[in-house]
Every structure is written in structure tokens, then in C-alpha cells.
């Protein structure tokens, strides 16, 4: 399980949030998603079809079932933000040499990855397993093996509202 990601060339440590869990509503199925909301309280449908719920209110038995279906996404904490990694990686390259290096690294990746989109300035990669954790690991792997301008898992983040005192 990834415990860091890269930003500005530095490792940003992340910690697992023990209190919250993110559920992929599509993988959970509509009936289960509805039952979860009834048990754990309403959650807005967030980017990537993710529901952010209290682990305690979901319950261990339900969590086991969701994990078995690949519907759980870990929630991490870093510098005041709660982060949910979605199974996508964005890679940005500055030039052809970096692009080729990324292609070569992908051929050696321990995780199954497909190129969802190739752009003039990089790639969007999809993690075949649907795991957000693997997205973090793939991003870190590419950063360390191919040194592109940037390699980042897609993160949905939860932060405090920007206005004070409301």
C-alpha cells in the first residue's frame, strides 16, 4: 500500500485515515450503495462515483464484502486534506525523450495499466484492477523509473471550506 506520492520532485508522506472509507458506488452496486447511505448517512456523489463514509457506521461486515468486490478505496490524510485516489494516473512529459522513457517503464510495470489517452504533453493511464492504491504505486514507479515532468494519481481531496467562521 502506497504511503507517499510525489509533488515538485519531493515525496509527500500520506497516512491512512482510520475513520473514513471511500466506496466506489458503481462497483458496490445500486442496492448496496443505497443501503450504505441509509446506514451511514447521505454522501454527495463525488468525482469518480465515490462515496465518502464513516468506517464505523458502514460496519466491518459490510466493509469485507465491499473489499471483496473491489469497491473500497482507501482514504489518506496529508497536510490537512483527506485524499481518495482514483484508478487513474496522469503523466506529463517535457519532450520526446521523457515520453519514450515512460513507454519503456510501462512495459516493466508490475501493475496492469492501459493508456486511456495519449496527449501532446503526456498520458492518461487507467489502472485495470480499479485500485486507487495501485494508481499511487504506478505513479510513484513511473516517477522513479522514467523521471517524467510529473506523474500523479488522480486524487479527490476533501479540505476545509476556505472561508473562516462559517
Amino acid at each position: 500500500m502506497a504511503r507517499y506520492y510525489y509533488a515538485s520532485g519531493e515525496r509527500i508522506p500520506i497516512e491512512l485515515d482510520e475513520e473514513q472509507v471511500a466506496v466506489d458506488a458503481e462497483r458496490a452496486g445500486p442496492a448496496e450503495a443505497q443501503a450504505l447511505q441509509a446506514r451511514a448517512g447521505p454522501s454527495p456523489r463525488l468525482p469518480g462515483g465515490v462515496m465518502l463514509l464513516s468506517r464505523r457506521r458502514v460496519g466491518e461486515k459490510a466493509l469485507e464484502g465491499l473489499a471483496a468486490r473491489g469497491a473500497l478505496r482507501p482514504v489518506y490524510r496529508a497536510q490537512g486534506a483527506a485524499l481518495v485516489a482514483l484508478p487513474e494516473v496522469r503523466v506529463e512529459v517535457d519532450g520526446e525523450a521523457q515520453r519514450q522513457a515512460v513507454h519503456q517503464a510501462l512495459s516493466r510495470s508490475p501493475h496492469a495499466v492501459e493508456i486511456a489517452e495519449e496527449r501532446p504533453d503526456g498520458f492518461v493511464l487507467r489502472i485495470c484492477s480499479g485500485s486507487g492504491d495501485e494508481a499511487l504505486e504506478v505513479a510513484n514507479f513511473l516517477h522513479e523509473a522514467a523521471h517524467p515532468a510529473a506523474a500523479s494519481a488522480r486524487l479527490v481531496r476533501f479540505v476545509a471550506r476556505p472561508e473562516p467562521g462559517r
Binding site: P47, G48, R154, V159
Partner: peptide
């Protein structure tokens, strides 16, 4: 960004970029 239903904001890094 949008309210997350519990007093915070939710954003998506890709979408923000």
C-alpha cells in the same frame, strides 16, 4: 469545488488542473 455535505469542500486535482 463543491460542498461535501459535512461542512467541507471537495475538489478533484485533475479537474482543478
Amino acid at each position: 469545488g463543491m460542498g461535501d455535505g459535512s461542512g467541507g469542500w471537495v475538489l478533484d486535482d485533475y479537474q482543478t488542473a
